[in-house]
């Protein structure tokens, strides 16, 4: 059986908000290491990979591996009934038909109990190769969100150019063009506000802004975001949170 108690409902609520528009149904794979999810988006050009490590729960118990097939929209509806500060407990039996969710207020004067039906999802599990990326850019998550949102007003796509001079986000569309260049900065008091660029070679790739804007729905989960790029492989956008991560992969657009 699974029993996982999470001190802050907000983590799960924000995580769901960050993936539910890309993925409709997915298996939550539960093992003694924690709860993970891996799913392609409906158009098969983006992949979502979530890990909530066991040590992020207190307590966490999972006797044998379980795949909980969940409709993310349904889970999101149930989680709307949880306050951000509530303590959430997830429970499932071995070979479960239902997932049980309990929301307790901080002072335990209110306990809400929900049961959600599970579904059978036959999901291909893709291997994610260990990759040494040519460019690794870490920047404030809010800055990345702002850039994607602003440039999506200009064009459907953005070209990200990482070089030793900085990282340039550029879009061109019918109404004109625009770009934002970030230089490396170091803010020792607020590391999450720094921008760092690690480069083994310059990389220039173009991506659909629709997807990037969707990925930035994870902004409330982390202060910083890391973009990792190499030529001809999918971009990795990673939000690290306490007790896990949310990663998105996106295939580059092919240049004419």
């Amino acid at each position: 059986m699974l029993e996982a108690r999470l001190a802050q409902a907000a983590v799960l609520k924000k995580t769901l908000d960050a993936i539910k528009e890309l993925v409709t149904d997915a298996n939550f794979d539960c093992s003694d290491g924690g709860i993970s999810l891996q799913a392609m988006d409906n158009s098969h050009v983006a992949l979502v990979s979530l890990l909530l490590r066991a040590d992020g729960f207190e307590p966490y118990r999972c006797d044998r591996n379980l795949a909980l097939g969940i409709n993310l929209n349904s889970l999101s509806k149930v989680l709307r009934s949880a306050q951000n500060e509530d303590i959430i407990t997830l429970k499932a039996a071995d070979d479960p038909d239902n997932l049980s969710l309990t929301f307790e207020s901080q002072n335990q004067d209110r306990i809400s109990e929900y049961e959600m039906k599970l579904m059978d999802i036959d999901q291909e599990h893709l291997g994610i190769p260990e990759t040494a990326y040519a460019a690794v850019i870490t920047m404030p998550a809010a800055e990345f969100q702002r850039i994607c949102r602003d440039l999506s007003g200009i064009s459907e796509s953005v070209t990200i150019d990482a070089s030793k001079d900085g990282v340039k986000f550029a879009s061109a569309g019918d109404i004109g063009n625009g770009s934002v260049t970030l230089k490396q900065t170091h803010n020792p008091e607020e590391p999450a506000l720094s921008t760092s660029i690690e480069l083994s070679e310059s990389v220039t790739l173009t991506f659909s802004l629709k997807y990037l804007v969707n990925f930035t729905k994870a902004t409330p989960l982390a202060g910083a975001v890391t973009l990792q790029m190499s030529n001809d492989v999918p971009l990795l956008v990673e939000y690290k949170m306490e007790g896990g991560y949310l990663r998105y992969y996106l295939a580059p657009k092919i240049q004419d």
Partner: peptide, 14 residues
């Protein structure tokens, strides 16, 4: 390759 093929190739490479 299309975006789909790029994803498939990359994730199948592991």
């Amino acid at each position: 390759p299309t975006g789909q093929a790029q994803m498939t190739n990359f994730f199948a490479a592991s």
